[in-house]
Write a protein that binds this DNA or RNA. Structure first.
Lengths: 340, 340
DNA sequence: TTGTACGCGTTATCAC
DNA sequence: GTGATAACGCGTACAA
């Protein structure tokens, strides 16, 4: 049953008539081998179908080449776009991506992180969820790097990449007011992640500064259906808003569809809408949504870049050399706000 | 610089006052350990922050627990949905997913497959591309399982999962004719993958059988923009089609948007449209697209199920015990065809 | 430049 | 049930 399946460096060495270390050196970038030996080894390897065993290599080097991507809702447009960029750049950097799907259940992210540790991942990149503090500490203590994207400022990850959510939200208020809107609304999800809440706070604050009150509604998670529900709630009131900022493009699409097809409202004439993320669908002509672009490729390259450079410090147990990057979310003007 | 980072079973054994084997057995599901020993080991492991090293374990067992997902266009709705299901089921089966992104470039999938071999993946699941026959053979010879989803019938993979594309396409013809349409069209991409071509063939054949000619157009890859371009081509003709079957939902969305917003056509009154995949956007009320559902969860569970059961045969070099599964694509009736 | 010898962390085998 | 020992495939210090 269990015949030898993979061919080892030993066999290559025998066939090539050299020592096993010669084989090892041939496949190690920095090593010194004579041209003749290398040729013989390569020939034998090709003939036998030899491939380096990264598991064994990782065991020796204490460096697996594996980077763990921890994410929930992979099928969501923004998440999958970020995933695409990350995997692409990781591959170019000679790393390989391990994908772990989390859900809302308790301990889901912790399990993911533990999985990453068991496979001795060089790093973990979290696109969702917040790890238990102790687990995160364990990662760091184990020499594993941690990158948190659009997560928290409080989290203990060494590299944190965030957006200027609050400031961006302020710019929507200006746009709405310039379009002649006065009855502003904010449609949010109940997820309550830091970036979503920052958008809400920024929007409300900027409006209040202009003496405008904002009606805020929260429902469900950040998806299309939740947007519809939010619209049903906010548009059945006697006092309808004339402009709504949705915390997410998916919410905005749902909101817009409900406004048009269930309430026969015209966008942007009777209702201005703005979203956040700039998912592909936002540019589809049925929506033509004004929104803020997540700088996905910038996020991904910052993350991978940071992972590629060598560990700056040995890291004391208590003093984690944290680094925080704040990226700009550009406003993409389209047709869902009047007077672009 | 390189202080000991991870804690090993050896250290746990010392602290617990038992042998290394006892530690190993504690973390091996099927092994027999006394309750007392297990308790001591678990306690020591917890205190030290011990985690099994899957790299070393994989090295011993000749089984890494890694399953390679080879895919291009990850950010596409259908692909990401399939990816979600697969990663979820793999995790439940105790496996872990390694994601490799391929592009259209030559040798991209081959590199991916080689990567899978280097990490001693137990299996590779291909959602895109077709591997070079020699590489595929190498995988199989190395004891690696291979699953091809919506790929080819000619490929050498042991498990091939396909849909009844041709038959499904025939059912659209019936629906179109029943809606009173007589000028049928098929909008395809230039990608030319087997499933896309099967849909085209099935549609044309079924229409011809009823004495109806079909105008076929192909452009770009299977995306929203390509759908728009196809609409521009087909709707500027003197003889406009009154029903179009798009090889993909993304194409259909683009086609519909162009028809409505650039040609002021009403769907489904002047133009019936059908798609394929049943991506989430197909159900959004702006599109409300009649389409065929990819049975993503069935596909994923078939694949994972097959991987979970033990290798049925030792596999001779020439006789590969291939298995082919043909799944049904259900028609999802929505508003883009008259008279549902 | 090349070969020898050892160690990485784990599991399987076999005595006890 | 438990503990010693061999083996997995590889990198590398060291001596030649």
């Amino acid at each position: 049953m269990s015949e030898k399946l993979f061919v080892s460096a030993q066999e290559v060495a025998e066939r090539a008539g050299v020592s096993r270390s010669a084989v090892s050196r041939t496949f190690t970038p920095g090593a010194s081998v004579s041209t003749e030996t290398r040729r013989k080894v390569l020939e034998a390897a090709e003939a036998l179908g030899y491939h380096v065993n990264e598991l064994a290599r990782g065991l020796m080097r204490n460096e697996s080449g594996i980077v763990c991507l921890i994410v929930s809702d992979v099928a969501t447009p923004y998440r999958s776009a970020l995933l695409r960029e990350l995997t692409l750049l990781l591959q170019n950097a000679g790393k390989v991506a391990m994908l772990i799907n989390t859900d809302r259940s308790d301990g889901s992210v912790d399990r993911a992180l533990r999985q990453a540790i068991r496979y001795r991942a060089d790093a973990s990149i979290m696109l969702s969820g917040m790890p238990d503090k102790s687990i995160a500490q364990l990662c760091l203590r184990s020499g594993q790097r941690l990158v948190l994207i659009n997560r928290d400022d409080e989290q203990p990850g060494p590299l944190r990449i965030n957006l200027d959510d609050d400031e961006a939200a302020g710019r929507v208020v200006t746009a709405f007011v310039r379009a002649g809107c006065r009855k502003l609304a904010f449609a949010n999800s109940e997820a309550g992640t830091p970036s979503l809440m920052a958008r809400e706070r920024g929007f409300v604050a900027a409006a209040n500064a202009l003496g405008i009150k904002v009606s805020v509604e929260r429902h469900g998670w950040t998806g299309y259906e939740a947007g519809k529900v939010l619209a049903q709630r906010m548009l059945t009131r006697t006092e309808r808003p004339d402009a709504v900022f949705c915390a997410t493009d998916l919410l905005a699409c749902g909101f817009m569809d409900a406004a048009r097809h269930q309430f026969s409202m015209s966008v942007p004439d009777q209702l201005c809408i703005a979203g956040f993320d700039d998912i592909e669908q936002a540019s589809w002509s049925s929506y033509d949504l004004t929104t803020f672009a997540q700088p996905v490729s910038a996020i991904a390259s910052k993350a991978v870049e940071w992972l590629s450079q060598p560990q700056p410090q040995p890291q004391n147990d208590d003093t984690i050399c944290a680094q925080s990057i704040r990226l700009h979310a550009e406003l993409v003007w389209r047709g869902s706000i009047r007077g672009g």
